[in-house]
């Protein structure tokens, strides 16, 4: 670090020592480090955004009429809100088979499992076990990427729709969905699907990018030299939050 030497009057190169003053980051409110505390507050603000989406969904859904007949007699119609297990009943590779919510169940399992591998990476970080951190981060990246791919398939299927389609109010048959019309129900149903699952998918994508960066930094030994793996913990908080949001999206979009 030759350039440091030239800048300092003492002539010795020093690392940026941890600051310990009360107003210098040395004070830890709630006994949590600055980074973790800020991650918690960021997640809280992110929760506001997702809550706004889900609240909007709840309001709009209750504004629309419900299908009053037996669930087995349900057909798509723009006059009432669709029953989710009649919309999301396809599975990749099993064309034409009615498997209500099976694929979304698999996606939920994948995401919960990625949360488990993430917490295992954090645990390995506490033990300063570099190899274990790498292993579990790779698993988490794999599951996260699988989830995004599954969502891409789900979107593609939703956009292309069924062969039968639905006869719209003007007499034409419409297949699939876009932001202006869809075969499943009211226009806003597809709009909310795209916005809510899309916003969540974007979060998963950011998470995977952050995890890949974490993996590279771990492999380079950055965290080991630093003496702690707190960065993994902070990214882990974000990753669990994304899983948490999915738990709510799953309930309000697919189950209720």
């Amino acid at each position: 670090m030759a350039h440091d030497v030239s800048l300092q009057s003492t002539g010795t190169a020093t690392l940026d020592a941890p600051r310990t003053g009360t107003w210098d980051g040395g004070n830890e409110p709630f006994k949590a480090s600055y980074g973790k505390l800020m991650m918690w507050f960021f997640l809280l603000s992110d929760a506001f955004t997702f809550a706004a989406f889900l609240t909007t969904y709840g309001l709009i859904r209750h504004k629309h009429a419900v299908f009053t007949g037996e669930a087995k007699d349900f057909v798509f119609n723009t006059a009432y809100w669709p029953i989710p297990d009649h919309v999301f009943n396809a599975f990749p590779g099993l064309h034409g088979v009615n498997l209500p919510l099976a694929f979304v169940a698999l996606m939920t399992m994948i995401l919960i499992f990625s949360s488990v591998t993430m917490v295992l990476a954090v645990e390995a970080g506490h033990r300063m076990d570099k190899a274990d951190v790498q292993k579990w981060l790779l698993w988490t990246i794999l599951f996260g990427a699988t989830f995004i791919s599954s969502q891409a398939w789900e979107w593609s299927h939703f956009i292309h729709g069924t062969e039968a389609g639905t006869t719209m109010a003007d007499g034409t048959v419409f297949h699939g969905a876009n932001l202006a019309a869809n075969q499943y129900g009211p226009v806003l149903f597809a709009d909310l699907f795209f916005f809510i699952t899309g916003f969540h998918g974007t979060h998963v994508f950011s998470g995977v990018c952050l995890l890949i960066w974490c993996f590279i930094a771990t492999t380079n030994g950055t965290f080991h030299k630093r003496g702690h793996y707190e960065m993994i913990e902070k990214i882990g908080l974000y990753w669990h939050f994304v899983d948490l949001v999915w738990v709510f999206v799953f309930t309000f979009f697919y189950l209720v």
Partner: peptide
């Protein structure tokens, strides 16, 4: 907020 606006939505409908 969620509970309040769902109730509101039912009323609007």
């Amino acid at each position: 907020l969620l509970v309040a606006l769902i109730t509101e939505g039912a009323y609007v409908g």
